Amino acid sequence: MKEQIRDFIKEEDGVGVIEIVLILVVLIGLVIIFKTNIKKLLDGIFEEINKQSKEVY
């Protein structure tokens, strides 16, 4: 029984979940901070795609 408790305490599966959650929080924070810059970049990309697609037709 004591060995099972020690093995449970030493198990590190939960650490991976915490790391993933922290990474997601940081990424979401960066998206919120740079939202306007990301929107400008994507608008420019899609505008260029529209221009070039009109040239193909």
Rank of each mutant, 00 (worst) to 15 (best):
M1L: 13
M1V: 08
M1C: 01
M1A: 06
K2T: 08
K2C: 00
K2W: 03
E3S: 01
Q4R: 05
Q4P: 05
D7Y: 07
D7M: 12
D7V: 11
D7S: 13
F8N: 12
I9A: 04
I9H: 04
K10W: 15
E12C: 09
D13T: 03
D13N: 01
G14I: 05
G14H: 08
G14P: 05
G14T: 00
V15P: 07
V15M: 04
G16W: 04
G16V: 11
V17G: 03
V17T: 14
V17I: 11
I18G: 04
I18S: 07
I18F: 14
E19D: 11
E19M: 13
E19I: 14
I20V: 15
I20Y: 09
I20N: 08
I20M: 13
I20K: 15
V21N: 00
V21I: 07
V21K: 10
L22V: 09
L24E: 13
L24D: 15
L24P: 03
L24G: 15
V25E: 02
V26F: 07
L27N: 00
L27D: 03
I28L: 14
G29I: 01
G29R: 01
L30K: 06
L30C: 02
V31M: 00
I33H: 03
I33L: 12
I33K: 02
K35M: 01
T36L: 08
T36R: 06
T36V: 02
N37R: 06
K39R: 08
K39D: 10
K39M: 14
K40A: 12
K40G: 15
L41V: 11
L41Y: 15
L42S: 03
L42A: 09
D43Q: 07
D43I: 10
G44T: 03
G44Y: 05
G44Q: 06
I45N: 14
I45V: 15
I45C: 03
F46N: 10
F46Y: 08
E47I: 00
E48I: 05
I49L: 02
I49K: 00
N50Q: 06
K51R: 10
Q52C: 00
Q52P: 01
Q52T: 08
K54Q: 08
K54E: 13
K54C: 05
V56R: 08
V56S: 05
V56M: 10
V56G: 00
Y57W: 09
